[in-house]
C-alpha cells in the first residue's frame, strides 16, 4: 500500500535512473553522443514538446484533459507568420499569437466549465477547429518569410546552453514553483484531487479551471514560437502527433488522468527519455521507431504495475468474474 506519496518520488527516481542508463549506454555505444554539439541538439529538439508537456501536466493535475495542445502550437506559429506577412509590427504579432493561444484555452474552458462537457471530447473538437483555422490561415503552405533576428534566436546560447532549452527550463521552474509553492497551485491540485471537496472547502472551482485552460493555451502558444524558431519556418502540420506523444510522456512521468497527482519534473523526464532514445537510435543507425515501441511498453507497465502483479497472482486466488 502506498503510504506516503512515495509513488511520485519513486517514479522520478526510476525515470532519472532510466535516463542516466540510456545516456551511459549511448556514451558507450556511440562516440558522438557525449559531444557538446549532440547534447545541445537534443536539448533544442525537446524544447517545444517539453513546453506542451508542461501545459498538459498542469491541465491533468487540475482534473482536466487537453488534446488541443498540438493544434494550439501550430496556431500561434500560423498567426505569427500570417500577421508578419501582412506587415503587422513583429512584437505585436507575437503578442497576438500568444493571445490566440489563450483564446483557445478560454474556449475550452467555457465548454468544459459552463456547458459541463467532457474535456477529452471538447478538446478533440477544438483541436479540429483550431487545426482547420491553421490550414485556412496558411492555405496549406509552409511559410518561411520571417524576420532574421527572430529566427536567429536559435543560435543564441545562455551559459553555453541553447536559448530554447533555457526557456523550457525557466518555464518549467516557474510552473513547478507555481504548482508546489503557491496558493494557486495548491488549489489546482485540490480541484483535481476532488472537485467537490475543493468546492465545499471554499475554492472557486470554475475560476481555477478557467485559469488552467488559459494557462495551457498560453504555454502551447509559446511552444509554437519556439518551434517556429527551431525549424525556421511556419508549417501547417506542426504538432500533428504531439497530443498523443506528449500525453504518453506525461503519464509515464507519474501524472494521472484522474487529476490531483503529477509533477512537471516527471513529465520532462519522460520527454527527455523520449528524445534520448530517438537520438540514440539514429546515432546507432537503428530504426528510430524503436523509441515509440519502448515508450508504449513503459506506459502500460508503469501504469498497469499493480494490475500486472495481481494477474500474476490470479491463478492462485479466485476473484470476481
Amino acid at each position: 500500500m502506498r503510504i506516503v506519496r512515495s509513488g511520485q518520488l519513486k517514479i522520478i527516481f526510476i525515470l532519472t535512473g532510466v535516463n542516466i542508463l540510456i545516456m551511459a549506454a549511448l556514451t558507450y555505444l556511440s562516440p558522438t553522443f557525449m559531444t557538446y554539439g549532440n547534447i545541445t541538439a537534443v536539448m533544442t529538439r525537446m524544447s517545444e514538446l517539453g513546453m506542451l508537456a508542461i501545459a498538459e501536466t498542469i491541465v491533468l493535475i487540475g482534473g482536466g484533459f487537453d488534446i488541443s495542445i498540438g493544434a494550439v502550437m501550430a496556431l500561434s506559429g500560423a498567426v505569427l507568420g500570417t500577421l508578419h506577412v501582412m506587415g503587422v509590427p513583429f512584437y505585436l504579432s507575437i503578442i497576438i499569437a500568444l493571445a490566440a493561444g489563450i483564446a483557445v484555452g478560454l474556449l475550452n474552458a467555457v465548454l468544459v466549465v459552463n456547458l459541463r462537457l467532457t474535456p477529452f471530447i471538447v478538446t478533440l473538437a477544438t483541436m479540429a477547429i483550431v487545426r482547420s483555422v491553421v490550414y485556412a490561415l496558411l492555405k496549406g503552405n509552409v511559410l518561411t518569410e520571417l524576420p532574421e533576428a527572430f529566427l536567429n534566436l536559435y543560435y543564441v546560447y545562455v551559459f553555453k546552453l541553447p536559448l530554447l532549452f533555457v526557456i523550457l527550463v525557466a518555464t518549467a521552474v516557474i510552473m513547478a514553483i507555481m504548482l508546489k509553492k503557491t496558493i494557486l497551485g495548491r488549489r489546482i491540485f485540490a480541484i483535481g484531487g476532488n472537485e467537490k471537496t475543493a468546492y465545499v472547502s471554499g475554492v472557486y472551482v470554475k475560476r481555477i479551471r478557467y485559469f488552467v485552460y488559459c494557462l495551457s493555451g498560453f504555454i502551447c502558444a509559446l511552444a509554437g514560437l519556439l518551434f517556429t524558431v527551431r525549424i525556421r519556418a511556419v508549417i501547417p502540420d506542426a504538432g500533428l502527433n504531439a497530443p498523443l506523444e506528449v500525453i504518453t510522456a506525461v503519464l509515464i512521468g507519474g501524472t494521472t488522468i484522474y487529476g490531483g497527482k503529477g509533477s512537471i519534473l516527471g513529465s520532462l523526464l519522460g520527454i527527455l527519455a523520449m528524445y534520448l532514445l530517438l537520438n540514440g537510435f539514429s546515432l546507432l543507425g537503428l530504426n528510430p521507431f524503436w523509441e515509440v515501441i519502448i515508450l508504449g511498453v513503459i506506459l502500460i507497465v508503469v501504469i498497469g504495475q499493480e494490475g500486472i502483479i495481481k494477474s500474476f497472482r490470479a491463478p492462485f486466488v479466485r476473484t470476481r468474474a
Binding site: 506516503v4 506519496r5 496558493i183 495548491r186 488549489r187 491540485f189 485540490a190 484531487g193 476532488n194 467537490k196 471537496t197 475543493a198 465545499v200 472547502s201 471554499g202 475554492v203 494521472t256 484522474y258 490531483g260 497527482k261
Partner: peptide, 21 residues
C-alpha cells in the same frame, strides 16, 4: 470520500485547503 477528502493528496494538503489564503 466524495466531498470531505482528496484521497490521493496528503494530510497536510487536505487540512490546509480552506485556510490557504
Amino acid at each position: 470520500k466524495g466531498e470531505g477528502l482528496m484521497l490521493e493528496l496528503s494530510v497536510r494538503e487536505n487540512m490546509s485547503l480552506p485556510i490557504l489564503k
